[in-house]
Design a protein around this nucleic acid. Sequence first.
DNA 1: CATATTTATGAAATCGATTGCATACTTTTT
DNA 2: AAAAAGTATGCAATCGATTTCATAAATATG
Lengths: 324, 324
Amino acid sequence: MEKKVTLKDIAKKAGVSTSTVSRVLNSSLPVNSETKNKIIKIIEETGYHPDFTARSLRLGKSNTIGIIIPDISNPFFSMLVKGADDYLKEKNFSTLICNSGNEKNDEKTLKFLIEKKPDAVIYAGIGNIKIFKNVGIPIVFTDRLEKDENFSYVVSNNYQGMTDMLEYLIKTKHKSYVFISGNNNIFSANERLRAFKDFTSTHNVISKIIHSDYSFDSGIDVVNNLSEFPDVIVCSNDLTAYGVIHGLKLRNLNVPKNLSVTGYDDLLFSEMLNPSLTTVNQPVYNMGKAAAEIILNMIEKNNTSVRIFKNELIVRNSTKNSGG
Amino acid sequence: MEKKVTLKDIAKKAGVSTSTVSRVLNSSLPVNSETKNKIIKIIEETGYHPDFTARSLRLGKSNTIGIIIPDISNPFFSMLVKGADDYLKEKNFSTLICNSGNEKNDEKTLKFLIEKKPDAVIYAGIGNIKIFKNVGIPIVFTDRLEKDENFSYVVSNNYQGMTDMLEYLIKTKHKSYVFISGNNNIFSANERLRAFKDFTSTHNVISKIIHSDYSFDSGIDVVNNLSEFPDVIVCSNDLTAYGVIHGLKLRNLNVPKNLSVTGYDDLLFSEMLNPSLTTVNQPVYNMGKAAAEIILNMIEKNNTSVRIFKNELIVRNSTKNSGG
DNA sequence: CATATTTATGAAATCGATTGCATACTTTTT
DNA sequence: AAAAAGTATGCAATCGATTTCATAAATATG
């Protein structure tokens, strides 16, 4: 274990003060070019790297963005993180990812994160907005929209996406609908449900709403408890749709011959499924990237913003296309 | 934006020195219980949190573990991270996750990470081991095994897992094999290939090896280039198997009626696939957790270790079971 | 050539916490 | 009652970098 090389060591070796070395490192003030080259050479030879904690302490900022997500193993969140992380890395920021587990842990997770003094936080959870009241650094929320103008928001247009899906379904002659809703404290789930309610109130169709929780198993359960089947089961997310398709298979029903099934999210696997899933694509990666862009902007210029992404209907093979 | 509360502020309010407050915070030395309570009360009132960077600077450690993975959106890695992160959080460590993108970036990513002074690093990439020579902090490698005893390793027994799979296939009367291998610089891929080679040299079967890259698309490609089909296509990972099944479907071949397909990894989605995938389960979550355990042990006791997990054959519906 | 300006550099304070050493006050021991 | 041991606390150095202020040397200006 070699000893750590510090600024002081470099200064001594070069026969200058630490100030001068620091100036070379940060190009903060001009330094005689001969001296400069000498210092640069020594830095390279010794493999010196500035100490991050010391620098952070002095500057009062860490060049680190915290990200809080409920579950990193959920493809939606890992893709969101990837989008943010790729962008931040490019801008020389690093990412402190905190996996909270569930919203009950979010306040604790936030405190834990704040102690690490990130310059800002991207929050992808559903915890109460109150816990962010006094954190004193920029916050951007993803996949939810609140009225508080102290924060920024990145969302996608869930209402429009679900509406597009339903318009497609009615155009392809689907007359009866079962809608499986997601957790009712989640913004996106509520928006998708709202789209469905508006749809049924303006179209002459048979419909039924089942409240659920976005999980694979819930899809299976719903199918098991259904006595008669509609033309289409509209799921609030892909995972539930996978469950529904699985459940239907167990009951020997063919998708889409006997009935159609749709999802929402367009996870990587929805294309690989058999039948491949008709769903709505959310640009999750780009949403993560946008969150990162916004947060850097907030740090620099202290201004908040709202960014809304479009959702795109992806027609595949889990829906019957009866003309249209 | 309120001003930051520091140790000094607390000390002044309590009419004591910063040393005393620090002693209360860390229980490092006894403090008069009256004084102690007074300090605790003030700390609570002001919502004071010790400054992480200052503490790290002074103590020379950050209570942070770095994790380098090639791709966070790959379920294998996100599950690994989750396993490690859950455990580390419990032990009051935080996790600095770096998504390198690919192995060419690994050296750069490592440097970037090291600047943040993590106490140790969990590495899940395939970059050259040389880059870890002089980092001066504990390193644990996951999913690979090297001879260097300065590091720790968490692997699963890929050779055994693939052997179990092949033994099952021969028992269920599969006579001809196409083996799709993964990237040849990846430890696990090599082990799985080695198992296949040993198998074919000791069993009287027809076999063919195709070198590939673990991707979904490569599975499709292989099927498209195949002129005659074996009894089973043995894939080195699940993703490729998904591609193979997809490709076979496009050619109107039924799995498992016309031929069997197997995977490796047992991703969450392999169960949901149609047909559900016969594969080998790796305890990824537990491997991540083990990596975290080992790394904390290395930090404390400075001893390295190797941990090998068993892989478990999971028989589902993508293989024909012809007696046995 | 004296003065003003620019350029290059160093000394020392600073960020916020921890800790070795010193010290003052109690309490115990002989 | 003097010496020894124990308890509670403060002072000041320290971690490694950045930056303000001061100053010396070099150059420009009139």
